[in-house]
């Protein structure tokens, strides 16, 4: 038997494979394909204090080995989440984590407080890295001063596990990982999407009406991997690796580069069963190599 257990502080995850925010809905959308209880965790769609309609259609452009999205945090707001969605997902036997977003520090604090009173949500992922909104989002995550401030205020208001989701659209990822650690975050997750763009040469217009979007999928994997490696060397808190993970091999690369866990995103669109296939793949790798604890592999490329 191999041991896949992963922990952030005292919070236990049955395995280190989670689904990424915005790519798995609230978990129940995947129930025809997988049993969500088998996942290490589910990070639900980015939630804001107020309901949001998001950006106009079209919101997606396919790119080589990836896609650009500009969804813009469409969601029904925290109240709807508490009343309608939470009762539906609170029975899952895995860690359901809410990805929180706002325009202001007060927004983030309010959300953290309200999520903090929901028993079955053991952690929040503080999204300071959404590239598709005009206010908040990445503006917090790319400025060291405001990143520090928002993490500090949320930390004061929230005493469960706090994961900070970092933006790759910065020069020094180490700097932001350290800020998160210094302000008391329990973990950092990265990367959110890379700011990108595509042009439609037939219409002679940008492929997305807002010009830019967030790039995800295998196209971003080498960049994500490099940033995860850098962040993991800069901090002691667990790093969760995200970006273009399609297979167990990809996941193992992130773990060997220093990630304690991974999130699977865009891969779900191509194969909704991919998160559980990745768990199985990691297991069989460990069995074949005679490794008992997956954690022995974390950051092993550095030694």
């Amino acid at each position: 038997m191999v041991n896949l257990e992963f922990k952030i502080g005292s919070l236990r995850f049955k395995n280190p494979v989670l689904t990424a925010s915005g790519t798995c809905g609230y978990g129940y959308e995947l129930e025809d394909f997988i049993n969500p209880d088998e996942l290490g965790g589910i990070i639900v769609k980015g939630t804001t204090p107020e309901p949001r309609e998001g950006n106009p259609y079209p919101r997606m452009a396919e790119t080589p080995s990836g896609m650009l999205n500009s969804v813009g945090l469409q969601n029904k707001g925290i109240e709807y989440f508490e009343k309608i969605i939470y009762p539906r997902i609170s029975g899952f036997n895995t860690n359901v984590i809410v990805n929180i977003n706002g325009n202001t520090i007060e927004d983030y604090v309010t959300l953290a407080e309200r999520i903090g009173s929901l028993d079955k949500i053991p952690a929040v992922e503080l999204n300071i890295s959404c590239p598709n909104v005009k206010k908040g989002g990445m503006l917090f995550g790319t400025n060291p001063v405001s990143a520090r401030e928002v993490i500090r205020e949320v930390r004061k208001a929230y005493n469960r596990v706090l994961i900070v989701k970092l933006s790759p659209n910065v020069t020094s990822i180490e700097e932001f990982a350290r800020i998160a650690e210094e302000e008391g975050a329990d973990s950092v997750s990265l990367i959110n999407t890379l700011l990108g763009m595509a042009v439609d040469i037939n219409t002679r217009k940008p492929a997305l009406p807002g010009f830019t979007g967030g790039l995800s999928g295998p196209a971003v994997k080498p960049v994500a991997l490099r940033m995860v490696w850098q962040a993991a060397r800069a901090v002691k808190i667990p790093v969760i690796g995200i970006g273009g993970i399609m297979t167990a091999t990809d996941a193992l690369e992130f773990i060997m580069a220093g990630a304690s866990a991974v999130q699977v995103g865009t891969a779900i669109f191509i194969d909704p069963e991919s998160p559980v296939k990745i768990i199985a793949g990691i297991k069989s790798y460990l069995e074949n190599k005679g490794i008992r604890n997956y954690s022995d592999l974390i950051g092993c490329i550095n030694s």
Binding site: G22, T23, C24, G25, E29, L30, K45, E53, G54, Y57, P58, R59, M60, M67, N69, V71, Q74, T266, I268, F269, P272
Partner: peptide, 22 residues
């Protein structure tokens, strides 16, 4: 025939404006 990524309601890329919003 809106452009789709997932087809299963998880990505929110395929929206159309309806009387109930997107």
């Amino acid at each position: 025939e809106n452009m789709m990524a997932c087809g299963i309601g998880v990505c929110l890329c395929c929206v159309v404006k309806s009387s109930r919003g997107n």
